[in-house]
Amino acid sequence: MTLKKLYRLLIYLGILSITIGIIDRFTGNNAPEQIYPGKSITIIVPFKPGGGSDRIARAVNAFTEEVFGREFIFQYKTGGGGHLGVGYLAQSRADGYTVATYNTPDLALGPLTGAAQYELNDLRIIGQIAFDPNVFAAQADTHYADMKGFLDDARKRPGKLRLGIAQPKGGTHLATLAMLHQESIDVSVVLFAGGSELATAVLGEQVDVGISGLAPFLGSIDRVRFLGVAGKLKHPRIPNTKTMNEQGIPMNSGTGRVFLAPTGISETRLEILRKGLSAICANESFITEMQTSGNDPIWTDGKRIEAELAAFSERAKLMIEKYEM
């Protein structure tokens, strides 16, 4: 290639990029506020495709065209228990065209345990579309009728029983340590990477009792006995299992499925996103779709979740120190 040809190529490339830039300017981020969203919104899923978070985001996406005029563009940013993708969102442009899905309370815990690089303040919460309370589960032929029975036995034989917890340093871990401390229980805690691993350990009797969300147990629900629900209300899928509060053991722990945007997003756009997502949550076919994968969608506005998380973050700081998590 001669030098002349190279120059010509460079000039062509220059013209091309300027044209693209101009087109982008008129169609892109500087579009007037009233037509937001004027282009597709990118959603960051901080876990692998096909996982629980991805399925929820895909279920939401089936209705985004109705609400926002366009479908989401999916982007997977995996690693660090999801904190990597959320950190990436925190650094994205706050123009309302990049959002993410993640879980509470891990969103608040990551910055405290050092697993995350972002701060809670870097993010705005659009809203929570579902909340899965954690459940305590044991093999079906366990001799414990409920968690009270397990804890009573643990008091009699300190350190002799094994309690499995899904996700080290996550919300479940912290809430369970707090409960054990409050009830003065000494058990051998075994930590598992995630719900699937924990469910395998419970079914294989590697641990006496395990705590995680309900979803991993759905495929073998007849072989499991649920000893308690760590939520405020009973779980609709296992209506006969008492909540921990009903058993006299105060505990409230679970996973909130939230949608996030970077801090700095204009209040108008945030409001549009909130309205749109809450409309999807109220859609009958969306609810049915979500229920097939074990989620019961209930919309909670981001403002409320933001306030709850800020308060939780303060409490969690002290708890992490106290329980040396």
């Binding site: 692998k48 495709p49 096909g50 996982g51 991805d54 759905l218 629900i221 072989r223």
Partner: peptide, 17 residues
């Protein structure tokens, strides 16, 4: 996991049932 995600999206719960 990905294949299981597809099964569940088709309304099929893999597992004992």
């Amino acid at each position: 996991a990905v294949i299981m995600g597809a099964l569940m999206s088709f309304g099929i719960q893999p597992g004992m049932g």
